[in-house]
């Protein structure tokens, strides 16, 4: 079986900063893969490199066995979509939800817009009452639902999730995580989820990679993480820290 997503020794270099130092990973179709690390570990850079938003210096990225060229084509953007961390920053402040959802359909020349927009809103649990609102009329959780609807409306097979719930309250986080699980099941999506929260990754993903300073620390199964069976001391330290303060 070909991998849905494959990275081979990918390096990303910003002007004088080596953000990613040769990272390789493979994700199977329908799998949920997690990336864990602290700030500056390069976990978000991986998503940006796949999406074509970060300068890849060397290495290859394959989607469904096809190597990506430097310039992504439209077909790529129909199969890979991304949800950003900050729901306040990822929606255009001057566009209604309707307009936000219409844009991807217009770009890809998909007709049947009316029905698709209504269906997309229903899928993420927002009624049509939200359709003509501006982002500032929505709460953080509602914005993130709109962002998910926008990503799903072009029917991608791979969803890149960059800390999708870290800006949300705990109770809203649970709702959004549940929503993501539901759509993943319904659409057989492949997830690449970035988070600093080990519990979130363990809950959502099958496998994960721990990162530090732009490099892989180790890859392990979520079950191993939950059982606290990490091989590397850095992972152990992260697990320790996530349990809270101890006097």
């Amino acid at each position: 079986m070909t991998n849905a997503l494959e990275l081979d020794r990918v390096e990303v270099v910003y002007d004088d900063f080596h953000a990613l130092k040769g990272v390789s990973l493979a994700v199977q179709p329908g799998e949920a893969f997690g990336l864990v690390g602290e700030s500056g570990s390069g976990k978000s850079t991986i998503l940006r490199a796949i999406a074509g938003l970060a300068p890849v210096a060397s290495g290859t990225i394959n989607i469904d066995g096809q190597s990506l060229s430097k310039r992504r084509d439209k077909a790529f953007y129909r199969s890979v979509q991304m949800v950003f961390q900050d729901p306040y920053g990822s929606l255009h402040p001057r566009q209604t939800v309707d307009r936000l959802l219409q844009e991807p359909l217009a770009i890809h020349g998909i007709d049947d817009q009316e029905r698709r927009i209504v269906r997309a809103l229903e899928e993420v649990g927002l009624g049509t009452g939200f359709r003509f609102r501006y982002p500032h009329q929505l709460s953080g959780g509602q914005r993130q639902r709109v962002a998910i609807a926008r990503a799903l409306i072009v029917e991608p097979s791979i969803l890149l999730l960059d800390e999708p719930t870290s800006a949300l309250d705990a109770s809203v986080q649970a709702e959004v995580l549940n929503l993501l699980e539901t759509v993943r099941k319904a659409r057989k999506l492949t997830f690449l989820l970035v988070s600093h929260d080990l519990a979130v990754v363990a809950h959502m993903c099958d496998r994960l990679m721990v990162m530090q300073h732009g490099e892989e620390v180790e890859q392990l199964l979520s079950t191993e993480l939950s059982a606290r069976k990490a091989r590397q001391p850095y992972t152990q330290k992260l697990i320790e820290a996530s349990t809270g303060f101890r006097r």
Binding site: F84, G89, S90, H92, R94, P104, I107, H108
Partner: peptide
Amino acid sequence: NSDYIAAVRLMGASPARIVVRHIMPL
């Protein structure tokens, strides 16, 4: 460099479309 412009790029919008439809109105 904001996320919402990155999101439009990720939809596959051309630079001309991004400038005219998303940046100019701002």
